[in-house]
Amino acid sequence: MAGEALIELRGVNKYYGKLHVLQDIDLTVGRGEVVVIIGPSGSGKSTLCRTINRLETIESGTITLDGTPLPDEGRALAELRAEVGMVFQSFNLFAHKTVLANVMLAPVKVRKVKKEDAARRARELLDRVGLASQAEKYPAQLSGGQQQRVAIARALAMDPLALLFDEPTSALDPEMINEVLEVMQQLARDGMTMVVVTHEMGFARSAANRVVFMADGRIIEDRAPEDFFTAPRSDRAKDFLSKILKH
């Protein structure tokens, strides 16, 4: 399943003041791989996800994307970020722009795609996430599930090498979670490289190639989903699974 490494973290450490939120993280994500990160709140999983495109800086260690070390700031960092899409818990659609303009903005500004071409591609992507009819609306006029699907389309518009999902369904009403998960399932089947921080164990089981279990800023287990869910090795993971899978 895993080809050559696309995302590689080596000895990554991060502190919030005295709090050691990421401790010696080593993680490799291969091309086309879907890695799901789970763990209790405050275990550092969101932070880990956000370090990969440097929305969070790190104190030590190295992060490489497609063989290129993550630059510090400026244009080089922006260029690398353009290759990694991100989907946020709170959607973060641009509130002052229509759905179509949200999806078009980055291709036009960053990739310098012609407006007509960007609009055509944006409509294709909106169609793919089932929202072609909503193109002219503003984000506030859409439901949470619809907003999140637009956010996925917006990330896809840059033709990224990989997609990062930071708890994409945590802010959604239960009946809207599935429409977002279905889009993500489809992306996984299409071979997109994905790093997904989530509490959706069903998604982890069905779509992930690997499950990474984190607790207290460390990676405790990194295994195939079936192995992890049926026979967790660590007490920490057993404890976590017993709490969430009980009912």
Binding site: A82, F88, N92, F94, H96, L105, A106
Partner: peptide, 26 residues
């Protein structure tokens, strides 16, 4: 909201683009 700027940066927009196209209009 901070997320607006983060979304723009995550798409590869530079600081002037993020400020001019996303943050300042709002």
């Amino acid at each position: 909201p901070v997320g607006q700027g983060e979304a723009a940066r995550s798409l590869g927009m530079t600081f002037p683009q993020t400020l001019g196209d996303v943050v300042l209009p709002q």
